[in-house]
Structures are given as C-alpha cells and as structure tokens.
Simulated assay, not measured.
Amino acid sequence: MNPMYDVVILGCGEAGIFAAYELARLHPDLKITALDQGRDIYHRSCPIVAGKVKECIHCPVCDTMCGFGGAGAFSDGKFNFTTQFGGWLTDFMDAREVMELIDYVDSINVAHGATTECFSTSTPEARALERRALAYDLHLLQARCKHLGTENNLRILQNIYEGLKDKLEFRFNTPVTHIAREGEDFRLTLGKGEELSCRWLIAAPGRSGAEWFAEECKGLGIHLINNQVDIGVRVELPAQVFEHITDVVYESKLVYRTKGYGDQVRTFCMNPYGHVVAENVEGINTVNGHSYA
C-alpha cells in the first residue's frame, strides 16, 4: 500500500516553500510532504564555490540549482516590488491583489530576518536618473527593490526551514520520475522505485525540472503553451561605472526598443561589488550574479 498524503509539494524552491508555509499555517491538520531531488539547506555545497574545482563538473544534481531554497538560495536576494516586470500574474489577477501578495511575501521574509531597507524609483534622485535615461531613449521601469545579500538570503531560508520542518515532512535527495492519475488522486514514482499517493499535488519543479515536467504534463493530457525566454549577456565592469545607478535604485530595469525591428531589450540583474557564478541547468551552463550585503 502506497503512503497516502493530503498534499504533495513537488520542489522545494521558493514556490514550494511558500506553498508549504501557507498550508501549514492555514491547514495544520493536513498530512503534507515536500519532495526535492536536491539536499536540505544545510548541506547544499557547490564544488566550484567551495573551491574544490575550477569549472563546472556537471554534478548529477546541481547544488546551486536544487535543494531547499531552489536557485534562489545562493542568489543575492533581490526582491522587486512591482507588476511592471517579472512575469504575467496580472493576466490572471488584479494588479492591486498581486502587489498585496508581494508585500505579504516580503513580510514573511522580514519576520525571518530580512532587511526593511528598500530602494525606490520614486525618489528625487531616481527621477533625475529617469530623465537622464530618457535623453538616450532608455525607459526606467518603476519599482521598489530590496537587496538581502547572498549571505543573509541563506540565513533567512534557514530560519524558514527551522519554522517548517516540524509542521510537515520534507524528503530531500528524492527525485520524482513519474506522475500518474489514480482516479481522483495522484500517484508518484520516486527515483528508487518507491511510490506514494496524494489527493492534491502542487508541482513546482523550477528550471531544473522544467523539461521533465513538460513531458509529464503531456502524459497527463495537460495543455501546454510556449513561454518566452529572455536571452541575456552578463558583462563585468568596475562597480564605479554604474554607481550613479546602483547607489540610487540598486537595480535598474532600463528598456530600449530597437529601431530596426522594434525588439525590446533591457538591463537586468545588476550585482554591484558582486561576483559571477556558474549554474548547470539540465546540462546547459549559465551564469548568475551574487552580491553580499
């Protein structure tokens, strides 16, 4: 007989963590387990970051991408408070409701150790920066931005994990290989052949599990749509070159529309006084930027 749960959360990245947080808060009577192919927040360690190797050795499970906290665990913890970029939630919800949820998530982070300091595009200095950008046909998107710092981001996630670990079951080093319907329930096959069942399944596999999850959706008859992908180039420059921007808004989203084809390009992911790290996304090497508080 397969173990039966009320809810299984597939993936312990930010989406899975906050799903677990809300369920544990609102429905403490539910039997919940959260699964992730990576390790817990205390045992994640990239061999490059640890100085054991000089370049990516393509670990079977990338510690930078997988485990409690997902790809965000070792990021610099930038949170943008806006509906102008960052996704299409406003296609499904009212913009005011989206902002209320963003502020609510921030309040949870603050309760677990996040800073309350915030940068804003509405200050006089930011308005002056916006006018200067317009002279070059660059448009500054409006947002508040909070920088937690790579080291603080990890500590906040550890605090959240400590608050959750006794309220639900976490299973790490536990890949899921197959999702099947079983009447009104779901049956999951795990990496070592074990199976478990649940009434509700929250699937949040993140980037590392995106290709696998797409194939599982097809098998379940779930209609898929194509999502756009932003292609970026990371450029390292002396921090002083962008200090007039980063000291004012920390991260700017400056949009430019090309004259020839009308394509939109923008700046993103500034990491002043930070460093570039490699990420392994299903065998594709990408780069990210970290910056300590």
Results as ranks from 00 to 15, higher is better:
P3V: 03
Y5E: 02
V7R: 02
G13W: 04
E14H: 10
A15P: 06
A15G: 04
F18L: 08
A19V: 09
A20H: 05
R25T: 11
D29P: 01
I32V: 15
Q37P: 05
D40G: 11
I41H: 13
S45I: 08
V49E: 14
V53L: 04
E55W: 10
I57L: 05
C59L: 14
M65D: 03
C66V: 02
G67Y: 03
F68P: 04
F68D: 00
G69Y: 05
F74T: 04
F79Q: 10
N80G: 07
T82N: 06
T83R: 03
F85L: 07
G86C: 05
G87M: 12
G87D: 08
G87E: 11
W88Y: 10
W88C: 00
A95W: 01
R96C: 00
V98Y: 05
V98Q: 06
M99R: 10
Y104K: 07
V105H: 13
A111W: 06
A111P: 04
C118L: 11
F119I: 01
F119M: 03
S122W: 14
E125S: 12
A126L: 07
R127E: 12
E130I: 02
L138H: 04
H139R: 14
Q142Y: 01
Q142F: 00
A143D: 12
N152K: 15
L154E: 11
L157E: 01
N159Y: 01
I160C: 07
E162W: 02
D166H: 13
E169N: 09
R171N: 07
P175Y: 13
P175N: 06
I179S: 02
R181I: 05
F186T: 04
L190S: 05
G191D: 06
E195L: 03
E195K: 12
S197A: 15
C198Q: 01
W200P: 00
A203R: 08
A204T: 14
P205R: 08
W212F: 12
W212S: 02
K218E: 14
G219S: 01
G219Y: 01
I222D: 06
H223S: 08
H223F: 10
L224E: 10
L224R: 13
L224A: 07
N226F: 01
G232R: 03
E236L: 06
L237E: 08
P238C: 04
A239R: 04
V241F: 07
E243L: 02
H244S: 11
H244A: 06
V248M: 00
E251T: 14
K253D: 05
K259A: 13
Y261C: 12
D263S: 10
V265Y: 14
T267R: 06
C269Q: 09
M270D: 13
M270W: 15
P272S: 07
Y273D: 12
E282D: 12
Y292T: 12
